[in-house]
Amino acid sequence: EWSVQQVSHWLMSLNLEQYVSEFSAQNITGEQLLQLDGNKLKALGMTASQDRAVVKKKLKEMK
């Protein structure tokens, strides 16, 4: 059960800090993070497919 802050730290740990402000603005918590798919990541401004791939891979490892 991650807070928005913990999601931000997680993104930073993946060197994806450029997305922290948008994820925070949308109040993405750990629970919501686990529901994100490629389209939702795109909607959050994650347009680079490599970045989405990293996030999806890491989320899969956490589930």
Rank of each mutant, 00 (worst) to 15 (best):
L41S: 06
L33W: 00
A25F: 06
M12A: 14
A43D: 14
K42G: 05
L36F: 02
L59E: 05
V7K: 01
M12T: 14
L33F: 05
D51K: 02
K40G: 13
K63I: 05
E1C: 10
T47A: 09
G30V: 01
Q5M: 13
L16Q: 03
Q50H: 15
K56W: 12
Q50S: 13
L11W: 00
T29Q: 08
A48P: 09
H9G: 09
Y19A: 07
E61N: 09
V7S: 03
K63H: 14
S21R: 14
N15E: 09
V20Y: 06
A48W: 02
V20K: 13
V4C: 13
V7L: 01
M12N: 13
S3Y: 02
L59Q: 04
S21Q: 15
D37L: 00
L36P: 04
E17D: 15
L11Y: 00
V7F: 01
W2E: 07
L36G: 04
D51S: 03
M12L: 08
E31T: 09
Q18N: 13
R52W: 01
M46F: 04
S49F: 07
Y19R: 07
Q35N: 15
Q50V: 11
L36T: 03
L33C: 05
F23L: 05
S24M: 14
M46Y: 01
Q6D: 07
E1Y: 12
Q32K: 15
K60D: 14
M12Y: 04
V7C: 02
L44W: 02
L14Y: 02
S49D: 13
A48Q: 14
S21W: 06
Q6S: 06
E31F: 03
N39T: 13
Q5T: 12
M46Q: 05
S13C: 00
D51N: 01
Q5V: 11
A43E: 14
A43V: 07
N39K: 14
L33P: 05
E31A: 13
S8K: 10
Q5S: 12
Q26K: 12
S13I: 02
T29H: 04
K42D: 10
Q6V: 01
L11H: 00
N15I: 00
H9E: 15
T47H: 15
W10E: 04
E17V: 06
L44I: 05
T29G: 12
F23H: 04
E1I: 09
V54Y: 02
L14W: 01
V54R: 13
Y19N: 09
G30Y: 06
L33G: 05
L34Y: 08
K58M: 09
N27M: 08
Q35A: 13
S21L: 10
D37E: 07
K60G: 11
S21M: 09
K60R: 13
Q26N: 10
K60Y: 12
L11C: 04
S8M: 11
E22C: 08
Q32R: 14
L33D: 05
Q18W: 03
N39A: 15
S3A: 01
V20Q: 11
Q35D: 13
Q18R: 14
L59A: 02
L33Q: 05
I28D: 06
N39G: 11
V4P: 09
Y19Q: 09
L11G: 00
I28F: 05
N27V: 02
R52V: 14
G45S: 02
D51Y: 03
W10A: 03
S24I: 15
E22L: 09
L44F: 03
Q32E: 14
L41P: 05
M46N: 02
K56P: 01
A25C: 10
S3V: 01
Q6P: 00
W2R: 05
Q5A: 15
S3N: 15
S21Y: 05
L44A: 06
S8L: 12
S13L: 08
S3Q: 11
Q5G: 09
L59P: 01
E22T: 13
E22G: 08
V4S: 10
N39L: 09
N15A: 05
S8C: 14
V54N: 06
A48M: 05
L44T: 03
V55N: 04
V7Y: 04
H9T: 13
Q35T: 13
L34F: 06
E61K: 09
W10F: 12
S24R: 15
L44G: 06
L41A: 03
G38M: 08
L16I: 05
A25S: 13
Q32P: 08
S8E: 14
G45F: 00
A25Q: 13
A53C: 09
Q18T: 12
G38S: 15
A53K: 13
L34A: 07
N15W: 00
E1N: 15
